[in-house]
Every structure is written in C-alpha cells, then in structure tokens.
C-alpha cells in the first residue's frame, strides 16, 4: 500500500501560477488526472515524481519527501510525456540499462519480463530511433515497469498509440491497479479517463476542480447548462415549443445568423425533447450544434460548481 500525498501544494514560475493550493491523496488503484491542456497536470506529475520542487506545500510518498530523495525511485516508475530516449540503443538495451540502474539482481530477466508485458519482444533488437511513436511509448512503459514499482506515474501515456495498443495498455494499467499498485495517469481526453479510472482528480487552470468517483463528476459535467445553435425550417415556432418545457431555460432568436440560441438545463431531457417537438410541429431541423462543448468550458463549469 503506497500513498502519494499532495498537501496544499502550489507551484509558480515567475508571475505565473501553474498549480494553486492543491491537496489530494493518490492511493492504490487507478486514478485519472484529468484537465485541459495547460491545466497544470504535467507540473503536478513532475512534482510527484521528484522533478520539480513545490513553491509551497509538500509532496510525499508514504510520508517521505520525494524531492531530492533518489531512494524514492525504488518505488516509483515514471513514464514521461517527452519522447526523447537513448535513440542509439535498441529497445532491449534501453530496458536492460534501466534495470541495471535500479540495481536489480538479474537485469536481463527483468527486462525480458517488462518487454513481454508491453508486447515489444519482437522489436526489442531494433534501434529505438526506428520505432514508431506507439512503440516508443511501450518501451518507455517497459522501462518504468522493469523494477515492478508500487507507484506508476504516466504523463499522457496514450498519446500516439493506436486503438489496439491503447486497449492493451489500459488492460495492463487496470491489472496493476487491481494488484494494489498506485497508478496515476494524466489525460485531457474525457473518454480515455472514463474507460480506465473510477477515481479521478480534475485540475483546471492550476486549481483542483473535482475529486472522486468518475460517474459522479461526469454527471456534474453532463448536467451543466448546455448551449446549442439550432437552424430549422421555422425557428420561431420551434422556440415557442421548446420554451414551454422545463428542460429549456432560455432561447434567443439570432436574426443575423438566422438561428436559435438555446440554453438547456437538463441535457438528457432536452435531447429527447428537441426531435419530438420538431416532429410534432412538422418542423425540419437543419442544424443542431453545441456551442460550448470545448473541454475547457466543461471543466470550467466544475470549478464554479
């Protein structure tokens, strides 16, 4: 049982606050660190992996400070986001070197196990410089797993992986979580997190926006006011029909755009209401598009919630 504790941690770079008074505890199992690009996810992972000192607060692993504590790497495996590796080595040489640096008794056997786990045995004797992005990612995984760490930190691990590799890595991380290891991965893609982590930590603009069960947070995200742009064969009649229902909280007739701007408060109710109302009134829908579905707006809602 290994627990990462982030206690009132802030990190600023000059005048820019990258992480603002974040407190969270990452325990055994798979945790998703979710947030839009630039939210502070990598900064948090760098602090958790001992590659960045907090400006204030503490980051500890089972009570021991990680910053400037090389011994903590006996328990931590890190998969960094950057792709640069020792390109002049083969995949096998690279993983063996990582095993040797960990001081393992049989580095060759440990490397073979790790490469087998990530299904890279067939390509292990090729130079890393010849690897695709997905292969590099898997060798990075193997190097992080070679000493069987109790904590695995992964910064955007699914970048560049094809769907099959992605599913394989998800299975692997799930298995590690089920084995009682502490697995934390960052992502800005909601669906990735949804498939893998039950527990998520959401960061937005350096602040800890939400923490807990994924479904609960997803519901919060889904239930926020949604805005749509709708074009139809009769915008005024459609507006009158929609506003009569409680799932719609506001409608604007945009004369210049020749469209309706609709704000819905009940996402599910509205998605059922709109086609039904249009059909009953004999109105043809030409366009229905969400106007605030960017991840940033979804996450920002959590901050305010």
């Amino acid at each position: 049982m290994t627990t990462l504790t982030i206690d009132h941690v802030s990190r600023w770079f000059g005048n820019v606050v990258a992480v603002n008074d974040v407190t969270m505890e990452i325990g055994p199992g798979v945790t998703g660190l979710l947030g839009p690009n630039g939210a502070g996810k990598s900064t948090l992972i760098h602090m958790m992996s001992g590659f960045l000192a907090p400006s204030s607060g503490t980051v500890t692993l089972d009570g021991r400070t990680i910053w400037r504590n090389e011994q903590s790497y006996r328990e931590i495996g890190l998969v960094p986001e950057r792709e640069s590796m020792y390109d002049f080595l083969t995949g096998a040489e690279f993983v063996v070197a990582n095993a040797e640096l960990h001081g393992l008794a049989d580095p060759g056997a440990a490397a073979r196990r790790a490469l087998d786990t990530v299904e890279m045995t067939a390509a292990q004797d090729r130079k890393i410089s010849t690897y695709s992005k997905g292969m590099r990612q898997r060798v990075k995984m193997a190097s992080a797993l070679v000493h069987e760490p109790s904590v695995l930190l992964l910064d955007e691990p699914f970048n560049g992986m094809d769907p099959r590799q992605r599913l394989h890595l998800m299975d692997l991380l799930r298995q590690m979580g089920a084995d009682g290891r502490t697995v934390l991965f960052s992502s800005h893609i909601l669906e990735e997190v949804e498939q893998l982590a039950h527990h998520i930590e959401v960061v937005v603009a350096g602040r800890h926006a939400a923490s807990g069960d994924f479904r609960e947070i997803r519901r919060l995200m889904t239930d926020r006011p949604h805005r749509y742009l709708i074009r139809s064969s009769d915008d005024r009649a459609l507006a009158a029909a929609l506003i009569a229902d409680a799932s719609t909280s506001g409608i604007e007739l945009d004369v210049r755009e020749r469209a309706l701007r609709v704000q819905a408060v009940d996402f599910r109710g509205f998605t059922e209401l709109l086609p039904r109302v249009a059909k009953d009134a004999g109105i043809r829908l030409f366009e229905v598009s969400p106007s605030d579905e960017s991840l940033e707006s979804v996450f920002s809602y959590l901050v305010a919630a």
Binding site: F51, E70, Y73, R74, P80, M85, F94, A97, N98, L101
Partner: peptide, 15 residues
Amino acid sequence: DDGSIVYLLSKPVSR
C-alpha cells in the same frame, strides 16, 4: 536538452 536524462535521474543512483 532533449529530456532523456530523466531515465538516469529517476533511479536510486546518487546524482
């Protein structure tokens, strides 16, 4: 420069 030093430094080896 390229960040690959991380693989050396994330090990229980004295800097």
